[in-house]
C-alpha cells in the first residue's frame, strides 16, 4: 500500500537528487479532508502532500498552465514539469505526448498505482454517510476504504464508494511514469459500456428525451472544458473572439465573423457545444471523469465521451492512451474502416 509518507519521502529524495524542482501533487483541503491540487517548489510544503482516495483530480490538466508559463518565460527551463499521476491520468499524458503538446523528456512523472481500489466518489460518500461529517477517507491496502465519519472510523467495501469510472477502469496503475509507487495490480472491473448500451437501445425520441432533460440544465459555465487536460486549444470554438481579428480588422468583417455557438444557454446552442466537444475528444478522452465531477448541474457527460470511446474501440480497434506511439484516431484510417453507411 502506498502511504502519504511514501510519497513525501520519494519527493524529498527526488528533489535532493536534483531530479525535481517543482511538483504538482495533492494536499488536504480546508474542509472535509478532501484532497485538492497542490503545487510545491523545492521541498516547501512536502509535508502537506497526501495520497488518499480523495485524490480525484487529473493533474495532467496543469501541463496546459505550465506550458504556457514556460512559453512566456525569458530563460529556458532548468527542471522538468513534474506531476503525480494515477493510471487514468498517465493515459492523458500519453495522448498529450502523442499529439506533441509536450515532450516526454520535459516531464517527470511520479506514478502511483490505485492497487486494489481507486478513487471515492464524493457524491456516493455523501449519500452513504448522509448527515455525517466526513473528516478523512483512507486506503487500506485491500479492496476497502476507511471512512472517518463523525470522528469514527468505518470500513466500507471499495465497490460501494468507487467512482463509476474507477469501477470500469482499464488502467488502475500508470502506463507511463519515471517512478512508480505501488504494485501493478490487476483489478476486476465492470463491463465498460453498460450505460452507453442502455442509451443505444432506446429509439430516437427516447434518446432525445434523455439528452434534452440532461442538457437543459447546462448553464454553459464550460467547467467541463476548463478541467479537461485535452482541451488545450488557445482559442476554443466557444471563445471565437479573436479569429482573424486584429487592430485593423474593419467593422463589417468583425460583424460577419463566424460564431458557431451563441452565448445563449438555449438547448440548440448547448447541444452543439457538447456534441462538438465530444467529437473533438473522440480517441483522445481517457475517461478520467473530471468533466462530470466538475459539472455543477450533474450532466452525465461521461456517457457522451464513452460513446466515442466505444466506437473507437469496437469499430476502429483504437485504444486511447496506452501508448504515445500511435496516430490520433481522426487523423488516421485503415483500409478496413467500415463504409456500409456510405451510399
Amino acid at each position: 500500500m502506498v502511504t502519504s509518507q511514501d510519497l513525501r519521502d520519494a519527493v524529498r529524495r527526488l528533489m535532493k537528487q536534483g531530479k525535481l524542482k517543482t511538483l504538482y501533487a495533492y494536499r488536504k483541503g480546508a474542509g472535509g479532508g478532501h484532497a485538492v491540487p497542490a503545487f510545491i517548489r523545492d521541498a516547501e510544503g512536502v509535508e502537506d502532500l497526501t495520497w488518499d482516495p480523495t485524490c480525484v483530480h487529473n493533474l495532467s490538466r496543469y501541463l496546459i498552465d505550465e506550458k504556457r508559463k514556460r512559453e512566456k518565460a525569458k530563460t529556458p527551463p532548468t527542471h522538468p514539469m513534474a506531476l503525480v499521476v494515477k493510471g487514468c491520468d498517465s493515459r492523458a499524458i500519453n495522448v498529450l505526448i502523442q499529439e506533441k503538446f509536450v515532450k516526454r523528456e520535459d516531464l517527470y512523472l511520479i506514478g502511483i498505482s490505485c492497487e486494489h481500489s481507486g478513487m471515492a466518489d464524493p457524491g456516493k460518500v455523501a449519500r452513504k454517510f448522509a448527515g455525517q461529517e466526513i473528516s478523512d477517507i483512507k486506503f487500506t491496502g485491500e479492496d476497502t476504504f476507511i471512512v472517518v465519519a463523525d470522528g469514527k472510523e468505518k470500513v466500507v467495501p471499495a465497490s460501494d464508494l468507487l467512482a463509476d469510472r474507477c469501477l470500469e477502469c482499464p488502467a488502475n496503475f500508470p502506463v507511463v511514469f519515471d517512478l512508480l509507487l505501488g504494485d501493478k495490480t490487476k483489478r476486476n472491473t465492470a463491463a465498460r459500456y453498460k450505460d452507453v448500451e442502455k442509451i443505444e437501445s432506446l429509439n430516437p425520441d427516447q434518446k432525445w428525451a434523455f439528452w434534452t432533460k440532461a442538457l437543459e440544465a447546462c448553464i454553459r459555465c464550460y467547467a467541463c472544458r476548463s478541467i479537461c487536460p485535452m482541451c488545450y486549444c488557445d482559442e476554443c470554438v466557444v471563445d471565437s473572439i479573436s479569429q482573424g481579428i486584429g487592430p485593423d480588422t474593419p467593422a463589417e468583417e468583425k460583424a460577419q465573423r463566424v460564431r458557431w455557438i451563441e452565448r445563449s444557454p438555449d438547448l440548440s446552442e448547448t447541444l452543439v457545444y457538447h456534441m462538438i466537444r465530444t467529437i473533438h475528444l473522440a480517441g483522445r478522452c481517457i475517461d478520467c471523469g473530471e468533466c462530470q465531477r466538475a459539472c455543477p448541474v450533474d450532466i452525465p457527460l461521461r456517457l457522451l465521451n464513452k460513446k466515442m470511446e466505444k466506437d473507437a474501440r469496437e469499430i476502429f480497434q483504437y485504444e486511447t492512451g496506452f501508448t504515445s506511439d500511435q496516430p490520433s484516431l481522426v487523423s488516421s484510417f485503415r483500409d478496413e474502416d467500415p463504409e456500409d453507411f456510405i451510399r
Binding site: P204, K207, W211, M275, T278, M308, F341, I342
Partner: peptide
C-alpha cells in the same frame, strides 16, 4: 469516412433520426 462516421454516430446517439444525415461517394 472515419470522421463522418463518428459524427453520424454522435447525432444518432443524441436522438436525431438516423435518416437525416447521409454520406455518399
Amino acid at each position: 469516412r472515419r470522421r463522418i462516421s463518428l459524427v453520424k454516430s454522435m447525432l444518432e446517439y443524441i436522438g436525431l433520426e438516423p435518416e437525416r444525415f447521409r454520406m455518399s461517394w
